[in-house]
Design a protein around this nucleic acid. Structure first.
Length: 493
RNA sequence: GGCGCCGUCGCCAAGUGGUAAGGCAGAGGUCUGCAAAACCUUCAUCCCCGGUUCAAAUCCGGGCGGCGCCUCCA
């Protein structure tokens, strides 16, 4: 079975054939660290994290680079506003980024370079472009001469002439062409700077990624990812720079994720219609956010709403409910059965379906559907297993039910892990969630426990009317009861 | 204005030529003192019009509606 990837460059799904067998090099544009990340950033992070995990699951040795843009106008502005050194800004938001990613269970990439650590490589790249006549200096600034690159516009499907016609009036009229973009910017007094052959300055945005990807992955690598909004001009410019300098098309497969929308509109800083990751995690379990982000195909827009987040959380409850119940059911019986063989585990039907879905351009939505079907089947199996203990006729089936359950659970966990899900301890998941809800509703847990105890006394006396009164009272508080063999448990509606 | 994407059940969402996955909500049922949870059953012909084809949600043309990129943006 082979992996197929939708390549922005060709607009088609193509078989994934890495440049070096068994290995994969992937570069994903990270964030500019001048503010907290919003849900749109979370989507890109979760999507490419999932791709990273899936490639590893498929057996590839993956070099995954995700950068930080830690020098740019917005950072300088922010530093000036807050009257702090620019490094204070970037350090603060890099830390915040790592916190957010940790909570979303986004794995650390193999390399996480900062632009400011890659300045010499950028200068070398720019120098090479200048030497080849593809870039020119203008009073301390260096621009890329777009017209020297005949394939400009190929990635984004744009024609140079159309672009020129539609180009805005530039502040800098000295550029040879309105499309030419800055590779190096002369620093203004008081601004951070690095020494270069063109004087003191700092890098343009696009050159960073060309330099950082090249530094860690070489002149050519397999996958380059980022949000759809980066296709033009950022990635177009990257191609122009890298290919202009090295002569190689740098990237084999370009992957772009769709936006997170709010009321059909793109979530973005400039529109102001965004929620930061931390805003959302105050209200929802981080895993619910991650599940939500993976519940649509990565290229489709996804609509952010409480309703959708609620649904994701509910789905998650089902999984964790099963893991908790199945764990409780199987654990005490483990000694009675032979351990399940690795072969049997790996032969679980879910894997084939999961792989098929993911092989088809990382179709996480379809993969999750298969996992959901498996979950339902396993719940049924679990009930059957519990009942079989009391039924002499079914006794003989128990070993079989047992290994089916164990294997199914393992399959769910393993596929879940590829999606970065189910990483919490089931008991922990529930407790944490409960705690949060109690705080939200300002419930008195002791009072709840007291009412439950009262109800259970009534039940013991078969005073059903009395018992129902307590139930109703709890219901008014938002508490729902579940009478299980192990006692009465409760949760918040 | 240029380029591009999208429109599938009340909601979310798969499906790129072979006769509509999955989830939520709803309805009925099993279980339960009653519930809850879980499970079972049930629940759409795919924005409109025309065309190609034995066959189209899927391809082509034309509408209508929504969105994105063209400027910093995941």
């Amino acid at each position: 079975m082979s992996l197929r990837i939708h390549n922005t460059l060709t607009g088609k799904k193509e078989d994934f054939v890495p440049l070096r067998e068994g290995k994969a090099g992937m570069y994903v544009c990270g964030v500019t660290v001048y503010d907290y990340c919003h849900v749109g950033h979370a989507r890109a992070a979760a999507v490419f994290d999932t791709i990273y995990r899936y490639l590893q699951y498929k057996g590839y040795d993956v070099a995954y680079v995700r950068n930080f843009t830690d020098i740019d106008d917005k950072i300088i502005n922010r530093a000036n506003e807050e009257n702090v050194p620019w490094q204070a800004v970037t350090e603060k938001y890099i830390r915040a980024f790592h916190e957010d990613m940790g909570r979303l269970n986004v794995a650390a990439p193999t390399h996480e370079p900062k632009a400011t650590e890659t300045i010499p490589e950028m200068i070398a790249l720019i120098a090479s472009l200048v030497e080849q006549g593809r870039a020119y200096e203008l009073d301390g600034d260096v621009y890329y001469a777009v017209k020297t690159f005949k394939d400009y516009g190929r990635l984004s499907g744009k024609k140079i002439d159309d672009l020129i016609a539609g180009a805005r009036v530039e502040v800098n009229e000295r550029k040879r062409d309105p499309l030419d973009f800055a590779l190096w910017k002369k620093s203004k007094p008081g601004e951070p700077f690095w020494e270069s052959p063109w004087g003191r300055g700092r890098p343009g945005w696009h050159i960073e990624c060309s330099a950082m990807s090249r530094k860690f992955l070489g002149d050519r690598f397999d996958i380059h990812g980022g949000g759809k909004d980066l296709v033009f001009p950022h990635h177009e410019n990257e191609i122009a720079q890298s290919r202009g300098a090295t002569g190689h098309a740098p990237v084999k497969y370009w992957i772009h994720n769709g936006f997170v929308n709010i009321d059909k509109e793109k979530m973005s800083k400039s529109l102001g219609n965004f929620f930061t990751i931390r805003d959302i995690l105050g209200k929802y379990h981080p895993e619910a956010l991650r599940l939500f982000l993976l519940s649509s195909h990565y290229r489709s827009p996804i609509d952010f709403s409480d309703r959708n987040l609620d649904e994701a959380e509910k789905t998650l409850d089902r999984y964790y409910g099963f893991f908790a119940e199945a764990g409780k059911t199987l654990e005490p019986e483990k000694d009675k059965f032979d351990p399940v063989s690795e072969d049997f585990m790996q032969s679980h039907a879910l894997f084939k379906k999961f792989d098929e879905a993911m092989d088809d351009d990382f179709n996480t939505a379809a993969a999750l559907a298969h996992m959901g079907e498996t979950l339902r089947a396993l719940n049924a199996l679990k009930d059957e297993f519990v009942l079989s203990a009391k039924n002499p006729v079914k006794m003989a089936e128990r070993p079989y039910l047992y290994i089916k359950l164990e294997a199914g659970m393992a399959a769910l966990r393993e596929t879940g892990n590829v999606l970065g899900l189910f990483f919490a301890d089931p008991a922990d998941y529930k407790t944490r969630k409960q705690k949060k809800k109690i705080e939200e509703l300002k419930l008195d847990a002791a009072e709840v426990e007291r009412l439950i105890a009262a109800r259970n006394s009534a039940r013991a006396a078969k005073a059903w009317d009395q018992a129902d009164k307590f139930r109703d009272e709890l219901a008014r508080m938002g508490v729902v009861l579940e009478d299980t063999p192990g006692g009465t448990i409760w949760k918040i509606k």
